[in-house]
């Protein structure tokens, strides 16, 4: 019974770690402009970071073939012809880390042409670390719970 309660406590703690809102420090939104060069099969810079609420302008410049830039989570994209540039402007109103992908077939490694766009801190990564830590510690009540259940099953089996 005690290990069952302990396990329940771990599950609840896990839910808190995963979903509890975190305090956010208010930062004045800014205008942020990035020039991203796209080539087969990489972006340069490949990682950009902004603050929540920033007005972001991405100037995509393709240096070889036609490339695109699609931001997961935001669902917005832009395409640039070879030697040309194209611009995408949006408000970074979703926090977290998002993958940036080429959305125009540009060659063999096209599905793996990936970059990273981070708004604020990558909260989910830290939450995941917390969950992993809780998971490791929970193994002790979990195994005690499973052992108790097995013994109970064996006893009821012997009773039959």
């Amino acid at each position: 019974m005690r290990s069952y309660l302990l396990l329940l406590l771990f599950v609840m703690a896990g839910l808190v770690v995963a979903f509890a809102p975190l305090p956010v420090q208010p930062i004045m939104p800014q205008e942020r402009t990035f020039r991203i060069e796209a080539r087969q099969f990489a972006y340069s810079p490949s990682e950009i970071e902004v603050n929540p609420g920033d007005r972001v302008t991405i100037q995509l410049v393709s240096t070889d073939v036609v490339h695109g830039l699609y931001i997961d989570g935001y669902g917005i994209s832009v395409e640039a012809d070879p030697g040309q540039s194209a611009t995408l402007t949006f408000i970074a109103n979703k926090s977290g880390s998002f993958r940036v992908r080429c959305n125009v077939t540009c060659g063999a490694m096209h599905p793996f042409m990936i970059g990273k766009f981070t708004v604020g801190t990558n909260d989910w990564f830290y939450r995941s670390m917390g969950l992993a830590m809780l998971g490791v510690v929970s193994i002790f009540p979990l195994s005690s719970f499973l052992t108790q259940r097995k013994k109970k099953e064996e006893r009821s089996g012997a009773g039959d």
């Binding site: 995963a18 997961d72 989570g73 977290g96 880390s97 993958r99 989910w124 939450r127 995941s128 969950l131 992993a132 998971g135 490791v136 929970s138 193994i139 979990l142 195994s143 499973l146």
Partner: peptide
Amino acid sequence: LTSILAPGQTLALVGGLIWSAR
């Protein structure tokens, strides 16, 4: 389903960690 990708991956990895610890 990109919105559930990160939680899904966390679930898989943390689940795998607990499973391995067991």
